[in-house]
Design a protein around this nucleic acid. Sequence first.
DNA 1: CTCATGTTCAGTATTTTACGAAGTAATGAT
DNA 2: ATCATTACTTCGTAAAATACTGAACATGAG
Lengths: 306, 306
Amino acid sequence: MSAPNTSPASLNHRHLHYFWVVAKEGGISRAAERLGVAVQTISAQLKELEQSLGTTLFTQEGRRLVLTEAGRTALHYADQIFLLGEQLQEALQLQSAAASLKLTVGISDALPKLIAYRLLQAAIDLPQPVRLVCHEGEFDELLADLALHKLDVVLTDRPAGSRPNLRVYSHPLGECRMGVFATAELAARYGPGFPDSLNGAPLLLPTRDTALRGRIDAWLSARNLRPDVVGEFEDSALMMTFGRSGLGLFPAPTLLADALEEQFRARPVGGMEDVREQFYAISNERKIRHPAVEAIRQGAEKLPLG
Amino acid sequence: MSAPNTSPASLNHRHLHYFWVVAKEGGISRAAERLGVAVQTISAQLKELEQSLGTTLFTQEGRRLVLTEAGRTALHYADQIFLLGEQLQEALQLQSAAASLKLTVGISDALPKLIAYRLLQAAIDLPQPVRLVCHEGEFDELLADLALHKLDVVLTDRPAGSRPNLRVYSHPLGECRMGVFATAELAARYGPGFPDSLNGAPLLLPTRDTALRGRIDAWLSARNLRPDVVGEFEDSALMMTFGRSGLGLFPAPTLLADALEEQFRARPVGGMEDVREQFYAISNERKIRHPAVEAIRQGAEKLPLG
DNA sequence: CTCATGTTCAGTATTTTACGAAGTAATGAT
DNA sequence: ATCATTACTTCGTAAAATACTGAACATGAG
């Protein structure tokens, strides 16, 4: 319970400030001039301060005001108080200048790194500097970290289903058409006759627990295609790395065609109509408060993802 | 034309106080309860503080407010600032409690000590404790010290005449009838036939530079009395001490009859009609500001001096 | 004496602070 | 899922604190 307010009504900073300036300037008129305030005002406020403190701060000696003993004591404290006030403002100014916004983001393994990069670009491009901390991991782990506030946001390829104990919100960021890619050699062999050419073709796929895998399986079976699944990967970057070595064809966002050519020497083999990879930002709040996360969401709207 | 305002508008103490309490209480609602104001008020003032500081101090995490890094810095300073504020008030409270009012008084030699004591009684009896510093001396010396602010007031038996370079003000305190006193033996001898018995009687008198001496001389000559002036004294107490030894009769305020009997074994010999000793307080100010001096002046009005 | 400084007062304007009502979010219970 | 609860915000207006004008007055200094 709050104590019976032994603490005397906290002293008025404005009054103290006037007192301080008057003491520094050595007179009410000069203080009034410096403060841009009428002398009567200062005189009255000084009186109120003296009343609230229960002491007289100045005595009129001759034609000038002279600090009393109590006044000198008060001035001593006021000096320190206002010094601290200035230091506080300086400290925060420095801090905010140096303080880049910190964005701790979890990136789902299944999300192509390049997509993640393009999404995060919006945050990096914010006027204020952003310090990015990226964690990669499995979807569930990331959600757990998010709930514990160890992450500000999770970027992933699917919304967070309704979970009993987890209160998280999925913000759709967009989607992107998928295609099949491979090394130039494999592309030359399987490109013609696509998609029928996929029958028996060596194919790398995401693991079954990803959103994308289900859509690809559906797409294949709708066309009665039976590729030879030579590898399954949780991490799409790992899949592409294997694909680069010529182990098999692999699915990827068509959007990334150029980047895949450059980084993985991969050529497009064919498009997978209807199969789209979706992207979500998952946060703890229905309404996104973190400015960098909001930047990501807004940036995604304009991004040519699909 | 708002200048770049290098000097940051001095931060609002009230805002900072609200921030401080919110941080301490861990929430706006609890802070509002403790401060006895509405939550909206605090919320708004917090926003203004954040704006004025250019940083956000709290983030809403779930349903509670959590200090940001800047907020923690600000809290650190606020702690010190409000600690100082409390200390300031405490210090002044102690100081004013212990700080007895200091009254430096000059007492003219010619003024009877007992009169001085009775005059000062009013100051001593003030509700606030008074620390008395008494200086005795000659009238002119005391006036000089007064002008130098080494004395708050001079108690004397005459007003300060208009002096060219001295700006002092005489406040009449009252007057008191005079009588002639002596040891029991002398009183028995000279009492009968008073005042004619004074002819040839051994008499002690104040020196010629006192106000009282002039009046006594006038009184004597008006009655054609020629006493034998066996001693002149600047200090009335010294005169009475000699009188106590039986050296001669001496004048004194009739008011002090009881005290003279007790202290100096002196008996009244007779009264001196028309001779009165007057008392004045001399100060540097036309209007008395020193509360103890004012108490003396007021106390003298009620005192049975005459 | 005059000038500079400070006090006091009355009446009014401006700024700051406060609050009621309504709204948004997150949370926990049914 | 729906709903009440808690916590905070926003908006518009009311109350309070602060400031100003203008004028009279006190006092000490030159």
